[in-house]
């Protein structure tokens, strides 16, 4: 309860100070949410009202057509379901793969550890553009094109996530696992029974990062998915941006609807994110 003890400590000047802080906090919230609220409202606007001069925040007439049209499109529902599945698999898989690697690098000793760590970390700096074409050649040779695996597998092992989780594991005092080790537990059991239960918060943050990376990806699915049954949500939304006219109303409505499942997941894990923040051993 860091926040409360702090505010108790500053009883003098309390009103002015806490008032200005609340104001700053509100400013943060408004500035951050403004573009999104505006996007949601634009979904209610007529085709070209979004870009009309002069600027109006609220729709002239509230139209439900855009939202209804997107919702009634079976392709939208299918794209949402498929993207949800792919993103979930991607996030869960990456947690398993990357947390194990992070633990190994944080706690275990083995030959060539430093060299392997250096190679793993160096992959963090490879621009996606460097391997865009050749990654496509690889997944094509592995016959993964036009399957869910082409989305799920390639980015699953991620140096930045390994680095992120490892930083957290390094901050966990060794005393915590010593008891388990003295009891004769092997390193894997220590990982599974001591580290994993402590990782809830960091897993939620890392998992959400990976989930969103997949949910928002566009360049890679465009290359690898042609089958309309396996279209991801960003590909679906791209169809509203034709060469000769952008269907702003539909695009904004579709984008707003595409946020909803992610926000639901986000709110479900919200407590973990907040608590996880506190558990972090990022020292």
């Amino acid at each position: 309860m860091a926040a409360t003890s702090w505010s108790r400590a500053v009883k003098p000047r309390k009103w002015a100070l806490s008032g200005s802080k609340t104001a700053v906090a509100c400013l943060f919230i408004v500035a951050t949410l403004f573009p999104l609220v505006w996007m949601g409202l634009s979904g209610f606007k007529a085709k070209n009202e979004v870009t009309r001069t002069p600027f109006r925040f609220l729709p002239e007439v509230w139209l439900w057509e855009n939202y209804l049209q997107v919702l009634q499109d079976p392709a939208f529902v299918r794209a949402m379901a498929f993207t949800l599945l792919a993103s979930t698999l991607f996030a869960l898989g990456s947690l398993v793969v990357n947390s194990m690697a992070a633990y190994v690098f944080a706690r275990l000793e083995f030959p060539f550890k430093r060299a392997i760590w250096a190679v793993v970390i160096s992959t963090m700096f490879i621009p996606s553009m460097t391997i865009l074409l050749t990654s496509f050649l690889v997944v094509n040779e592995l016959r993964m094109v036009n399957t869910i695996w082409v989305l799920v597998l390639p980015g699953m092992a991620s140096a930045s996530q390994i680095f992120f989780i490892r930083q957290f594991y390094l901050g966990i005092p060794t005393a915590i696992e010593e008891a388990a080790l003295i009891d004769g537990a092997g390193p894997f059991r220590v990982f599974a029974h001591v580290f994993v239960p402590m990782s809830k918060g960091i897993f939620v943050v890392s998992g959400m990062t990976m989930f969103l990376a997949m949910w928002n990806s566009y360049v890679w699915p465009v290359l690898t998915i042609t089958e309309s049954d396996l279209t991801v949500i960003q590909q679906f939304l791209a169809l509203f941006r034709g060469a000769r006219s952008t269907e702003y109303g539909l695009l904004m409505a579709g984008s707003t609807l595409a946020l909803i499942p992610v926000l639901i997941i986000f709110f479900a894990f919200q407590r973990q994110i907040v608590q996880g923040a506190r558990l972090s051993g990022f020292k």
Binding site: R143, N146, T147, I148, L230
Partner: peptide, 10 residues
């Protein structure tokens, strides 16, 4: 899902 996808590969 992936299996379905593979079946339908062009």
């Amino acid at each position: 899902v992936a299996a379905c996808g593979t079946d339908e590969q062009p």
